[in-house]
Design a binder for these strands. Structure first.
Lengths: 233, 233
DNA sequence: TGGGATTTGTTCGTATGTATT
DNA sequence: GAATACATACGAACAAATCCC
């Protein structure tokens, strides 16, 4: 057996999941959009079997709704589910900052500040990039706890919250103020756990606060063209 | 279309998952046990496709390890993963008791006390039943928060912790003292959130504390016979 | 080390259910 | 309301990897 060389010779299911997650976060795919197995397979160059597995996994993460004998669609959480998701997210991210306060290594601090710099740079450009980076800031924090379990749950909730905002938040609102991220990092560095928790709570509350119902008629959308920028390769 | 009548005419994948979860919690299946797709399919009367889906879902929950081109096995978390899992569980269950303190309805209180009575009744009998009921007590609490998201995560971690205890705890230790459950409920009823949190913390710490490495040579085990009591239907 | 038996990875065909004209 | 087109559910079958003697 050849050594090294990632034994998964390209995890096609995982690649599709990552592409779809990113498309959802960036709002190229929005709740209700249809995800037929063949179209996905064609777009990603795989058979229906693989597309199906990806849909199953994303359904487990709450990003996709799988109805029996029906085309899968991007999930449309109810308002209750949305509120619940945000509530639990706040609880989990509180755990994150509690673990991190006063314990950031120099490298971690640098990585966070670099990420925030990236957010600032993106804030003038496309909204898609801003939203994605804002989401990833929270995932980055969670990863730094060194707890894979916490990291996974925070990531899952982060993606779901991004989906929820694409459903309920009014258009053209910056969904995550970069300066708030900055303040959180400052509090973490200073070791003031209580302040970091308060800032994170306030930050996420503000994000959730932007969730407003805007019932916008949805035009038919072309999955294949839509997904083009998200095919890894 | 005939009305009512659960439109999922028996979710076979879900049924297999439930059976397997229960078998794992009751230690009929223990870490490292092999789960070949066709043996599962034969046992549950389904094709490999269905068995495979169930394995995929359980892998997502961390109960099964899926290695490429290899037989799936019941997961064997490392000690680090085990500790991480317990840590996050404690954090989440703290959220649960914080939400529940002073807010239990009469029905909920009755349900909890009935459950504890069941645990006491089972404490003389089979160890399997005791362990399962102890796990389910925590799931029941989480459900009562009315938060599906929190409920799902606590359930997932509860099952994983049961798995971990079957790996690391010494044999014949009661894994969950019934009286501690009782005290937690009493604190919740009294509305003393701080005390409820402290009791839950202490309780889960004590459970984790029982995790000790016991390297026991594993005999070959017959999946088909093993699983017989867990086939639903 | 080798080779046969096992087991998984994947595709694809058929049956069945859903949407649409 | 029926017929047609379309999409999914499931299982059979084949290729490739792995296991085990």
């Amino acid at each position: 057996m050849r050594q090294g060389e990632t034994s998964l010779p390209t995890d096609r299911v995982g690649a599709i999941c990552r592409s779809l997650r990113r498309a959802i976060v960036e709002r190229a795919l929005t709740p209700g959009d249809r995800l037929p197995e063949d179209a996905l397979g064609e777009r990603f160059g795989v058979s229906r079997t693989i597309a199906r597995q990806a849909l199953g996994q994303l359904a487990g993460e709450g990003l996709v709704e799988l109805r029996r004998n029906r085309i899968a669609v991007v999930a449309s959480p109810s308002w209750e589910e949305a509120r619940d998701t945000f509530d639990v997210r706040i609880g989990l991210e509180r755990l994150v900052v509690q673990r991190l306060a006063g314990r950031l290594s120099a490298e971690q601090r640098a990585a966070l500040e670099a990420h925030i710099a990236g957010e600032e740079r993106a804030s003038g450009g496309s909204e898609a990039a801003s939203i994605r980076l804002a989401t990833e800031f929270h995932l980055l924090l969670a990863e730094m706890t060194g707890s894979p379990v916490l990291g996974r749950y925070v990531a899952e909730l982060g993606y779901r919250c991004a989906l929820i905002l694409s459903l309920y938040s009014r258009p053209h609102s910056a969904d995550c103020a970069v300066s708030e991220h900055s303040e959180i990092v400052a509090a973490l560095v200073s070791g003031d756990a209580a302040r970091a928790v308060a800032l994170m709570d306030h930050h996420l509350d503000a994000v959730a606060e932007r969730a407003r119902i805007v019932d916008e008629p949805r035009r038919e959308r072309d999955l294949l063209r839509l997904l083009a920028p998200y095919v890894e390769g």
